[in-house]
């Protein structure tokens, strides 16, 4: 299948990308690595007039430290994320979840920012960004603004990024001493999307759970925090993990599709949450 015709604009800076988007508005679509967009173009589920390619914008790639945060450029590829020392050391949950994204060839092209801005609820990285309280730095004609993950994912494939804006980088608080993490994913075959995924980060202190953050993949039209589980784990002993995980589906609206009905996903969410939290708590 061949995409519909479009004009191709290659941006070499954030300013150029923003200028092109300001000119073409919602007729334009931003392309990062293209690993989600190109299949959509080919299926003609998306047919923008203009494609603005930001894949080569150097200032949008790479990882740096900024005090208590890591700043991950939106164009950092999945392959780079997996192998990046800073990410492995300070935000290992991101590297672990990224290893489960698609397959090696797709991870060579697909990007961290592209996956977040695409906002597929079955994608692995949105729930991770949400669990880690990441902040998205978005550039537009009026300058830059920072949007917390909890306000970033609005609906199915919809984010706070406006048609004339581009996601530039993601600020992720470092997980300090005492934090453990795990991404648990249940899928049908190796490179397929998550039927359900659970991203957990847990801080242990004196043998109990001092703090837990749990993000759910594919349990609604956006990634969601399992706030009932987090509340139940707060200050809890390790023996209470199973009981807390039973609250994983509270407040979710899981989809039903060929892979499973909503109640099956709710069951998976509880089981995977128990496994993820148990592993993250190191027990």
């Amino acid at each position: 299948m061949i995409p519909a015709q479009f004009d191709y604009v290659r941006a070499s800076s954030v300013d150029e990308a923003v200028a092109a988007l300001a000119e073409h508005g919602d007729e334009a679509k931003v392309m990062a690595g293209g690993q989600s967009l190109i299949p959509l173009l080919r299926l003609r589920l998306s047919y923008p007039e203009v494609v603005v390619d930001v894949g080569r914008v150097a200032e949008m790639a790479g990882v740096r430290e900024d005090g208590a945060h890591l700043v991950i450029g939106a164009m950092t590829t999945h392959h780079e994320v997996i192998h990046n020392e800073l990410i492995r050391r300070h935000c290992g949950l991101i590297a672990e979840a990224t290893e489960t994204v698609a397959d090696p060839a797709v991870r060579h092209r697909g990007t961290f920012g592209g996956a977040l801005a695409h906002a597929d609820p079955a994608g692995d990285l949105p729930a991770v960004a949400l669990a880690l309280d990441a902040e998205m730095v978005i550039a537009g004609s009026g300058g830059r603004r920072t949007v917390p993950a909890e306000e970033f994912f609005l609906d199915y494939l919809q984010t706070a990024v406006q048609p004339d804006e581009v996601l530039v980088e993601v600020r992720v608080p470092k997980l300090g001493e005492g934090w453990g993490y795990r991404y648990e994913k249940f899928h049908r075959v190796a490179q397929s999307w998550a039927i359900v995924g659970v991203a957990a980060a847990v801080r242990r202190s004196n043998g109990t759970i001092a703090e837990a953050r749990v993000g759910l993949t594919n349990m609604g039209s956006t990634p969601v925090r399992a706030s009932g589980v987090e509340e139940a784990l707060n200050g809890a002993s390790l023996e209470r993990i199973g009981e807390a995980a039973d609250r994983a589906a509270e407040g979710t609206s899981a989809p039903s599709d060929l892979n499973g009905k909503a109640d099956y996903r709710e069951h998976l969410a509880r089981v995977l949450t128990r496994r993820a939290v148990t592993a993250a708590a190191g027990s």
Partner: peptide, 12 residues
């Protein structure tokens, strides 16, 4: 690096 050439534009 391996890529799937059906999911890369020639211009990329």
């Amino acid at each position: 690096q391996s890529v799937k050439s059906c999911s890369v534009l020639a211009v990329q």
